[in-house]
Design a protein around this nucleic acid. Structure first.
Length: 531
RNA sequence: GGGCCCAUAGCUCAGCUGGUAGAGCAGCGGCCUUUUAAGCCGUUGGUCGAAGGUUCGAAUCCUUCUGGGCUCACCA
């Protein structure tokens, strides 16, 4: 920044460094070895005082109250903070020069013994002081800290220095990742890493980022999901695999969306989505108890109870309960279209569903002005369909209602089970009702946290589903999947019955840390570059 | 992408229906060897996000731009 040279505060700190260097002080010394930490010093204060234990520790000066010939400072390291007391007659003249030039923000190494001040605060009386790094910029103000959200995210290091609650969020994040890895490892899952750069877009419905490989002269997509690779590993005999890493989706940025986000995906052979519900209950209730010490958390002032078992809500029940969708609409396409329109779903969205299987780009906008034509279209399409086809389409239409009316009602942990096959191109059909799939989505506080299903392992059915996706893509649906021929081939070699699940880690962290913006749980969220 | 809002000292913020910039903290100088937002005295510090416009005069009103926040849409 061009202000560097003009800012008086920075100039003052640079002057101090110059004066110290003049006196032969190394302002970037790296020879100090700290045998102790702040936490260790505070572990048994009275014992240490009694024994006169010598401590050595290093850290950043985060507060300084100077009297001229003595001072109290707060020293912070990765374990915590401790007060230190520096006075002139306990240190050498060279060390006193360092002391005189000390700023908040500097790193120092000290040695000394513990005592208690007259207000009983455990404090180290310094008998050795060494400057380890001279800071050249002033830290934000000590009362209010750093509040400006933009600067907090752009300069996360300052945020972390100034805001203890932010430090705690990211420590929690690390604990959560550790817990999940341990949980899955204990149950025989193997952590794997599959490609981040894909030549086909698949595994989810989203627009991808495109990049280019020069030597091969091909475009590649940053992965939107690792799903198909993980299932190839199940074909290969790794019956229990998981991947805990980033996905990239070229969509809008919002309170709940960062272009790169962390996803847990795991696959378990010889299991069904029912088994995964039990596993998810174990994992998440245990996680909440580990992080919070109990099953209940508060999110945005609201109590959320993770005591297992979690509620199970069949998809169609949800539509009946929260949107009063009539029975007919689940079986008759025109009734479904009417139900959606009556619930103020935009005609264009309904049209997009109805026209998905038509080849080429479709004009859906025209229905916005003429919703009645949509009912006519539904009648025409219905005539060409058998009962199953009509129910399949009807549930596809009603999904628009589900998203608008049901999802935000699901505050306590809820498994929504038995999704429409229409919106589940990779899931196994329900044997008792082929318009549905063996799938659940898991909602908390109106947010989708997990998505799981018994995997589709019939290669011919999978081929037909890919065809529908390819058709949608040709119709202009930029979020539709590519046809992955190799994956079909893998399924033809045989994939054992398998269930798989994805859990959005960032959203889970939002819940666990009571944050309503995803940026608060991602260390360096994507921001537009400055200037 | 649409709508609403925000940008003033290193940080946190005042600044009225237009009259030419303020506080606290931080900094600097002085006093001070047990403070906890240490204290007391003195003091420096600004292209008011950027560029245009209106006006005798703009931090203030208007336009555009840049960055951000909230929100709606898409998604996880």
């Amino acid at each position: 920044m061009e202000k560097t040279d003009t800012n008086k505060l920075i100039q003052s700190m640079r002057n101090k460094r110059a004066a110290l260097e003049e006196a032969g002080v190394n302002c970037y010394a790296n020879d100090f070895k700290a045998a102790d930490t702040a936490a260790k010093c505070l572990h048994d204060v009275d014992g240490a005082i009694e024994k006169g234990t010598n401590f050595s520790l290093a850290g950043r000066v985060v507060a300084l109250r100077s009297f001229g010939k003595a001072a109290f400072a707060r020293l912070r390291d990765y374990t915590g903070e401790i007060q230190v007391y520096i006075k002139k007659d306990r240190i050498t003249q060279d060390q006193f020069l360092v002391f005189k030039k000390l700023d908040v923000g500097d790193f120092i190494g000290i040695r000394g013994r513990l005592f208690r001040t007259k207000t009983n605060e455990p404090t180290i009386e310094v008998d050795f002081l060494e400057l380890l790094t001279k800071a050249l910029r002033p830290l934000p103000e000590k009362w209010h800290g750093l509040r400006d959200k933009e600067m907090r995210h752009r300069k996360r290091y300052l945020d972390l220095i100034m805001n203890a609650d932010v430090r705690e969020v990211f420590r929690t994040r690390a604990r959560v990742l550790g817990y999940i890895r341990a949980f899955l490892n204990e149950r025989g899952f193997m952590e794997v890493e599959t490609p981040m750069m894909h030549s086909l877009v698949s595994g989810a419905n989203a627009r991808p980022f495109v990049t280019h490989h020069n030597a091969l002269n091909i475009d590649l997509y940053l992965r939107i999901a690792p799903e198909l690779f993980l299932k190839r590993l199940v074909v290969g005999g790794f019956d229990r695999v998981f991947e805990l890493n980033r996905n990239f989706r070229n969509e809008g940025i919002s309170r709940k969306h960062n272009p790169e986000f962390t996803m847990l995906e795991f696959y378990m052979a010889y299991a069904t989505y029912e088994d995964l519900m039990a596993l998810t209950e174990d994992m998440l209730s245990g996680l909440v108890r580990q992080v919070h010490g109990k099953y209940e958390i508060r999110y945005m002032g609201q109590a959320i109870d993770f005591t297992p078992p979690f509620e199970r809500l069949p998809y169609e029940e949800g539509l009946k309960k929260y949107a009063r969708v009539p029975d007919r609409a689940f079986h008759e396409l025109p009734a479904a279209v009417n139900a959606a329109l009556e619930r103020e779903v935009p005609a264009q969205d309904v049209a997009t569903v109805l026209l998905r299987d038509m080849k080429g780009p479709q004009d859906t906008a025209r229905f916005e002005k003429d919703p009645a034509a949509l009912v006519g279209l539904a009648n025409d399409i219905a005539k060409g369909l058998d009962a199953l086809g009509q129910r399949t389409h009807a549930l596809g239409v009603l999904h628009t209602v589900f998203e608008a009316y049901v999802e935000d009602k699901l505050q306590n942990p809820t498994f929504v089970v038995d999704y429409p096959v229409w919106v589940s191109p990779l899931a196994r059909r329900k044997e008792s009702d082929p318009a549905l799939v063996d799938r659940f989505e898991f909602f908390i506080a109106g947010s989708e946290i997990a998505n799981a299903f018994s995997e589709l392992n019939d290669p011919d059915d999978q081929r037909e589903r890919f065809k529908a996706q390819a058709m949608a893509k040709s119709g202009g649906d930029e979020e539709a999947m590519d046809f992955d021929e190799d994956y079909i081939e893998a399924l033809e070699y045989g994939m054992p019955p398998t269930a798989g699940e994805g859990i959005g880690i960032d959203r889970l962290l939002m819940l666990l840390t009571d944050n309503e913006n995803i940026r608060e749980v991602i260390l360096f969220p994507l921001l537009r570059p400055v200037g």
